Simulated scan of single mutants.
Amino acid sequence: MDCHLNLTCGFKNGKSYVKDLYVTLPFRVVSVGQRKTDNKLYQMIMSSSPGILDGDHYHLDISLEKGTALQLQSQSYQRLFNMKDKALQEINVSMEDDTSFAYVPHPVVPHEDSNFKSEAKVHIGNNSQIVISEIITCGRKHYGEVFKLKRFQNLMEIYHNNKLIIKDNVLIQPDLIPIKSIGNLEQYTHQGTLIFYSTKDELKTGELIERILKDAEAHHEEMEIGISTMENNGFVVRGLGHGGEVMYNFFVHIQEILWALD
Rank of each mutant, 00 (worst) to 15 (best):
C3A: 15
G10M: 00
N13L: 05
N13K: 12
S16L: 04
S16I: 02
Y17V: 05
V18F: 00
K19L: 07
T24K: 09
V29L: 03
V30G: 04
S31Q: 11
Q34S: 13
R35C: 09
T37K: 13
M44Y: 05
M46C: 09
S48T: 15
D56C: 03
H59P: 01
D61T: 07
D61W: 00
S63I: 06
T68M: 03
Q78N: 08
L88Y: 09
N92C: 12
S100D: 10
F101K: 00
A102M: 05
Y103N: 11
S114P: 02
G125Y: 08
N126Q: 14
I135D: 06
I135G: 09
G139E: 08
R140M: 02
R140D: 05
K141N: 06
H142D: 04
H142A: 11
G144S: 08
K148F: 00
K150G: 04
I158Y: 03
L164D: 11
L171P: 01
P174K: 04
P178M: 09
P178V: 03
S181H: 06
N184E: 15
E186D: 12
E186Y: 12
Q187P: 11
E210W: 00
A216M: 04
A218N: 07
A218M: 08
E221K: 11
E231T: 05
N233Y: 00
N233L: 06
G239N: 06
L240G: 04
L240Q: 01
I254L: 03
Q255C: 15
I257T: 05
